[in-house]
Design a protein around this nucleic acid. Sequence first.
DNA 1: TTCCGGGTATCAGTACGGCTAATGGTGTAG
DNA 2: CTACACCATTAGCCGTACTGATACCCGGAA
Lengths: 310, 310
Amino acid sequence: MHLETLRLYCDVVRLRSFSRGAEQNFVSQSAASQSVQQLETQLGVVLIDRTKRPFVVTREGEAFYGAARGILESWEKAKTEVAAVKARVDGTVRVAAIYSVGLHDMSRPMQQFMSLYPEARVQLECLHPHKVVEAVLTGEVDIGIMSYPPAERALRVVPLREEPMALVCHPSHRFARQRVVMPAELAGEAFVAFDPGLTIRKAIDRALRQHNVRVNTVMEFDNIETIKQAIIIAAGISILPRHTVEKEASIKTLAAVHVAMPDLVRPVGIVYRRQKPLTPTAERFVQMLHEVSDAPRMPARERPRATAPA
Amino acid sequence: MHLETLRLYCDVVRLRSFSRGAEQNFVSQSAASQSVQQLETQLGVVLIDRTKRPFVVTREGEAFYGAARGILESWEKAKTEVAAVKARVDGTVRVAAIYSVGLHDMSRPMQQFMSLYPEARVQLECLHPHKVVEAVLTGEVDIGIMSYPPAERALRVVPLREEPMALVCHPSHRFARQRVVMPAELAGEAFVAFDPGLTIRKAIDRALRQHNVRVNTVMEFDNIETIKQAIIIAAGISILPRHTVEKEASIKTLAAVHVAMPDLVRPVGIVYRRQKPLTPTAERFVQMLHEVSDAPRMPARERPRATAPA
DNA sequence: TTCCGGGTATCAGTACGGCTAATGGTGTAG
DNA sequence: CTACACCATTAGCCGTACTGATACCCGGAA
């Protein structure tokens, strides 16, 4: 059963004419006649009494006319409803970020984005790195923002920036009075480290190993905030992205010192599903992230470029 | 847009599988896949996220699922509604009769019919002869019952009976004491006639003319009941179908006397639209009319037979 | 990792159904 | 009664939805 047939029938009844109904539906009069006949056959009912001119709609025809109108209305409503959902979904960017990025680096681009596209919405949630990947893969979020983005087949990775790392210690620590700390000086220091399962832990370990330094790991945490708290109570030192301790450094709660390990950076990237192209809104949000990241912290010549989505 | 496609989509979503949805609709898995794809193209929306297994219905898909279910329900409702109207109409015989027949001769066949077919209904309305024809032609009624049924091309006529006529007069009239009245005796009598527009008037006029009799027409009415009232107040005599005055004759309100004009009979027939075959129920009602008419009043050899409807 | 199995997308071929154009029939108005 | 407007009917074409086969993809297991 074609919905077009119902529409045709309704127009025929409304206009009291097969010819005009056909015209309104851009088909021939013959088609209208045949369609209504088929409709009557399928229903097993005579809808229109054609022996009078102009024809007379039977009682069954009147009843069916009302019902058909209702169905067509429902159909139109369904289409607009779906379109509305699409618009709403399209206009919403769901973002999952790791804690450090979400807490320190998302408010500015989000505010800027929402002022540029007032109709758009951004849903941000802060998760553990593994959960970020999971959320992206399950489609719970459109994009993920994380450090050390994994190279999975189902994921597309767009490098965003590389964050310089700094040695972070208590203001009373002797390092706090130095302009720079050499790797060798770290030997034997009480060290507050990341959890062994995290990629950043492996990266720092590797860097220390490269400089033949062995630290004394006294604590392990899965997030930067807790590590900072541990340093504040003088539990030890650590190596963290520079900008995540900027606030504490300015109020002298913590000290951030340059450490001579130029290879040690924290790469931050955007991940999304390879199979699922970004929505236009999400794409604009990614663009916004790049612009905000580029300006304050990175020289133009090192700017990473987003790879074009499929 | 096919309603079958909507049903297929609903089944696919409900069963969370293209294969099972296809099976449920007796089509191939391929067809299900293509149908849903086309649906998505037409709506410009992705309804099902097929990159996961089992697939995930998108928000748009959920919204559309609800709407589609509503449409399908409406469709089922529409079909049953129309069927109900059809059943009701089919089981109802709409009859238009002229006053004299409707008042005197319909209660018995109607009662008998309704006791034979309790689920059937009879709608009887009494109209002027012209209105009876009109009601039949417009389709307002299924069959018409009238005297002197007209031979129109659009009408099919089934003779029902020929009613003998009698001279009707006031009980105090001299004719009331006679066993028979000869046509010649009518000369100059005060006569209460039918309206000139009615066929029965023309028939009576012709019969009188054939017997070279001229009456004194004092009143003209378009229905038998009024004529009878006029006779009761001694306004004159008339010639009416015998059985329409039987009740008044039995209680001596009127006198009905045999008049020697054997050609003068009132033919009563059933009319219905030639283009519109009778419903089964209407056909049974016509049959009933014949049986009731035949038994009391007419010798078997004169029984008219219904012509078979198309 | 590699393979395997269930499930879906894709493709070419085909059959069915709806459309058109021309023609025939019917009702209504003048 | 004639003319006209309107609808039904017919044959033939074309589009489209189906089928069956095959390729692809994802997820799980060795």
